[in-house]
Design a protein around this nucleic acid. Structure first.
Length: 243
DNA sequence: AACGATCTCAACCGCCACAAC
DNA sequence: GGTTGTGGCGGTTGAGATCGT
C-alpha cells in the first residue's frame, strides 16, 4: 500500500457520500476516527468542516433573509466576531457563512462609506473609523486598527459566555419567531428547534452538543430541504451504500 | 464577444480549550 | 500536575462565478 498524502482542496461527490455514510455510522464528533476509517485521505478537521459547512442536512442555503441580516448585525454588535455563537442563533446558517456574509457586507459598507467621506470630505482624520451607518456605527468603536470588518462588536469580555448570554434574550428588538416562520415557510421539514428557547443553543436546529445526530430517525428527509435547488442532494439510495 | 474587476464561498491554517491518560 | 490528542473557532486565501465596460 502506498501511503497517500492527505488530500486537500475541493471535495468530490464520492468523498461527500463517503463522509455522510460514516458520519451516520459514527456520529458527528469523532472526526479523526472517521477520517481514518473512512479511507478518505483527509484530516479530521477537514471532514468536520465539510460536514458542518456543507453536508449537514439542516443547512439552509441561499441568500440571507432581511431578518437574518438584522440578527447578524445585532448579534455582532453584542458579541463581535464570535461567528460560531452568532451562527447558533441563526438556524441553518454556519459560522463560515455568516463570517463570509459579514465580510462582504462590511466591505460594501466600507466602500460606500469611503465614497461618502471622500465626497463630503468633512470627516477627515478618522484613523479608520468606518462610520458605516447610524445603526451600524455602534458596531465599530474607533479602534483605529484592524481590518475593516474586524471585531466590530464591543471588545466583549466573554466571561465564559455567561454574562453576554444573559443579556441577549432580553433586549432583542424582535423575536426569533419571525425567523422560524420564515424558515418554516421555505423549509417546512427537518429544521425544528429541538432545545427549548433559552439555552445557549436555544434556537439551533439541534443541540450541537448531542452525541449522535437527531435526524437519524428521519433520514428520508435528509437532502431534500433545499428551496432553491442550488444544493447538492444525495438521493437516499446514496446513503448507506453498503446497505 | 472579450476582457478585466469584483464578489462569493469553500477550504485551509494556526491557535486555543478541553478531555483523556 | 504535565503531556498529548482532538475538536472547535476565527482569520485568511484562492478559485470560480458574476458583473460591468
Amino acid at each position: 500500500m502506498v501511503h497517500e498524502e492527505t488530500r486537500k482542496g475541493p471535495w468530490t461527490e464520492q468523498e461527500d457520500i463517503l463522509l455522510v455514510n460514516f458520519v451516520h455510522l459514527f456520529g458527528d464528533r469523532r472526526w479523526d476516527f472517521i477520517a481514518k476509517v473512512s479511507g478518505l485521505n483527509r484530516t479530521g478537521k477537514s471532514c468536520r468542516l465539510r460536514w458542518v459547512n456543507y453536508l449537514h442536512p439542516g443547512l439552509k442555503r441561499g441568500k440571507m433573509t432581511p431578518q437574518e441580516e438584522r440578527l447578524v448585525l445585532e448579534l455582532h454588535s453584542k458579541w463581535g466576531n464570535r461567528w460560531s455563537r452568532i451562527a447558533r442563533k441563526l438556524p441553518g446558517r454556519t459560522d463560515n457563512e455568516i463570517k463570509n456574509y459579514w465580510r462582504t457586507h462590511m466591505r460594501k459598507k466600507a466602500q460606500e462609506n469611503k465614497r461618502l467621506v471622500s465626497s463630503s470630505s468633512s470627516f477627515s482624520n478618522s484613523s479608520s473609523s468606518s462610520t458605516i451607518t447610524a445603526s451600524d456605527s455602534q458596531n465599530f468603536p474607533d479602534t483605529g486598527k484592524a481590518s475593516f470588518y474586524d471585531t466590530g462588536g464591543p471588545k466583549m469580555i466573554d466571561l465564559e459566555g455567561k454574562k453576554s448570554e444573559q443579556v441577549e434574550e432580553g433586549d432583542k428588538g424582535y423575536s426569533m419567531d419571525d425567523i422560524w416562520k420564515d424558515i418554516a415557510l421555505s423549509d417546512k421539514n427537518i429544521i425544528q428547534p429541538v432545545c427549548d428557547g433559552y439555552s445557549e443553543e436555544g434556537y439551533s436546529f439541534f443541540c450541537p452538543s448531542m452525541a449522535s445526530p437527531p435526524w437519524e430517525d428521519s433520514l428520508d428527509s435528509l437532502w431534500k430541504m433545499d428551496e432553491e435547488g442550488s444544493r447538492l442532494f444525495l438521493p437516499s439510495d446514496y446513503l448507506f451504500l453498503s446497505g
